[in-house]
């Protein structure tokens, strides 16, 4: 899973502190080097990585510290707090409310997995007994409506879309209106892939949000993304109110560190991860338990007092 591998490397690096007889600047530098390498290999944004290294250096002042154990704990705690910052934006995700319409809009780069994940999420809520549906507001990508239609038909999810209407804003508005009238609780809007360099696409996204007033906007990221993620995520957040992140394609080899910069840039938590092409390949992601699991991997549990 995401970061699990990364977590393992980092915990083992942290544990190696316990074997060092003296804790000095050199030991700290070696440790940081190991951690920085692991983070960069996992595609974590280089600016965030450098920041982490600086923050640790700032906090750990060897001249002011006394006592070996203390130093060890200080270093471990500081590194861990910095790592937690990467995954935990400190904000709570939107929680849908039963008995009223919850409009959830998907946005993201081309091919990141929006359409697939829309169906997965609809299926997830449907199985939990919510009245769920999907609106296909992608009129650009060839075969987009067929993709939604086939996915939804197979899973028996009600859907709305059009082969003839070319304006995604109109479709989104009509679809959401209709489903609201019919008393649907989870209304998911799929949109076209877009990127910050093409302003008309961002403008279109804004217009859709203006007419549909989504309760939550989910930014979908591919786990294999590298250093370009941060500026894209930031641009999405600047234009619309992204509230959650979903990282897809974590069934592969990718560690998902690049997608993490979406958490920092949008100040939004990861709520689900995609782990395959099938409709049930969606796992809930909860930041806090994830972190404690990461902590649990070493014997440094309890390092972070809450």
């Amino acid at each position: 899973m995401v970061l699990a591998d990364l977590g393992r490397k980092i915990t083992s690096a942290l544990k190696s502190l316990n074997n060092a007889t003296i804790i000095n600047e050199e030991v700290l530098n070696d440790l940081l080097k190991e951690i920085v390498t692991a983070l960069l290999e996992s595609d974590v944004n280089i600016r965030l990585v450098k920041q982490l290294r600086e923050n640790v250096h700032k906090t750990i002042d060897f001249d002011e510290m006394a006592g070996g154990l203390n130093k060890r704990r200080m270093i471990q705690t500081t590194v861990f707090k910095e790592l937690v910052k990467l995954v935990d934006p400190g904000t709570k995700p939107y929680v849908p409310v039963k008995g009223r319409p919850n409009v959830i809009m998907f946005v993201g780069l081309q091919g990141s997995g929006k359409t697939t994940t829309c169906t997965k999420l609809a299926y997830y809520y449907m199985r939990k007994g919510w009245k769920t549906c999907l609106v296909c507001a992608d009129t650009f990508r060839a075969g987009a409506f067929d993709q939604v239609k086939q996915n939804c038909t197979k899973a028996r999810i009600p859907f709305y879309g059009s082969y003839t209407e070319v304006d995604p804003v109109v479709i989104a508005m009509d679809g959401v209106d209709q489903f609201k009238k019919e008393g649907f609780e989870i209304i998911i809007i799929d949109t076209s892939g877009r990127h910050k360099q093409e302003d008309s696409l961002f403008e279109e996204m804004l217009q859709i949000t203006n007419v549909c007033k989504p309760d939550n906007i989910i930014f979908v990221m591919d786990a294999s993304i590298g250093q370009a993620c941060e500026s894209q995520a930031k641009a999405f957040k600047e234009r619309v109110d992204v509230g959650s992140v979903i990282v897809t394609k974590l069934d592969g080899h990718a560690k998902g560190g690049g997608a993490l910069s979406a958490v920092a840039a949008t100040r939004s938590p990861i709520i689900f991860i995609g782990t395959g092409e099938h409709i049930d390949n969606l796992e809930e992601f909860k930041t806090k338990p994830f972190i404690s699991k990461l902590l649990g991997m070493g014997d440094i549990e309890g390092l972070i007092e809450r």
């Binding site: 990508r141 060839a142 075969g143 987009a144 409506f145 067929d146 993709q147 939604v148 239609k149 086939q150 996915n151 197979k154 092409e277």
Partner: peptide, 16 residues
């Protein structure tokens, strides 16, 4: 022959 809409995607391109 797996991903939903894959064939229709190509058919649309062929038409265009």
């Amino acid at each position: 022959t797996f991903r939903a809409g894959a064939v229709e995607q190509l058919r649309t391109h062929t038409h265009h």
